[in-house]
Lab assay of single mutants.
Amino acid sequence: GATAVSEWTEYKTADGKTYYYNNRTDESTWEKPQELK
């Protein structure tokens, strides 16, 4: 099967917290998305 390329990108805020942003859905989350686990 084809490997899905994750749409999630990991970013850090100014105070060093990590969050994740999805370019396709324009969604952001503090929790690590399922695709990255």
Rank of each mutant, 00 (worst) to 15 (best):
G1N: 14
G1Y: 13
A2Q: 12
A2P: 13
A2I: 13
A2L: 14
A2T: 13
T3P: 14
T3I: 13
T3C: 15
T3K: 05
T3Y: 07
T3V: 13
A4Q: 13
A4M: 14
V5F: 13
V5I: 14
V5A: 14
V5N: 11
S6G: 11
S6F: 09
S6D: 11
S6R: 09
S6I: 08
S6K: 08
S6L: 09
E7R: 03
E7A: 09
E7Y: 09
W8F: 02
W8H: 00
W8M: 01
W8Y: 02
T9L: 10
T9D: 04
T9K: 11
T9A: 10
E10A: 10
E10H: 03
Y11P: 00
Y11T: 04
K12W: 06
K12M: 10
K12F: 06
K12P: 02
K12Q: 10
T13F: 04
T13R: 03
A14Y: 03
A14Q: 11
A14K: 12
D15A: 07
D15F: 05
G16R: 00
G16V: 00
G16A: 00
G16T: 00
G16D: 03
G16P: 00
G16E: 02
K17H: 08
K17N: 07
K17L: 10
K17W: 05
T18M: 05
T18I: 13
T18W: 04
T18Y: 08
Y19P: 00
Y19I: 08
Y19G: 03
Y20K: 00
Y20H: 01
Y20W: 15
Y21M: 04
Y21A: 02
Y21N: 03
Y21E: 02
Y21W: 05
N22F: 01
N22Q: 01
N22V: 01
N23C: 15
N23S: 15
N23W: 15
N23R: 13
R24Q: 10
T25F: 03
T25A: 03
T25Q: 03
E27L: 05
E27D: 04
E27Q: 10
E27K: 07
E27G: 03
S28Y: 15
S28V: 15
S28K: 15
S28L: 15
S28P: 02
S28G: 10
S28Q: 12
T29P: 02
T29W: 05
T29Q: 11
W30S: 09
W30A: 07
W30I: 06
E31P: 01
E31N: 07
E31I: 11
E31S: 07
E31D: 11
E31C: 15
K32Q: 08
K32H: 05
K32N: 07
K32E: 08
P33T: 02
Q34D: 15
Q34K: 10
Q34R: 07
Q34G: 11
E35A: 12
E35G: 09
L36T: 05
L36A: 05
L36S: 06
K37T: 15
K37Q: 15
K37E: 14
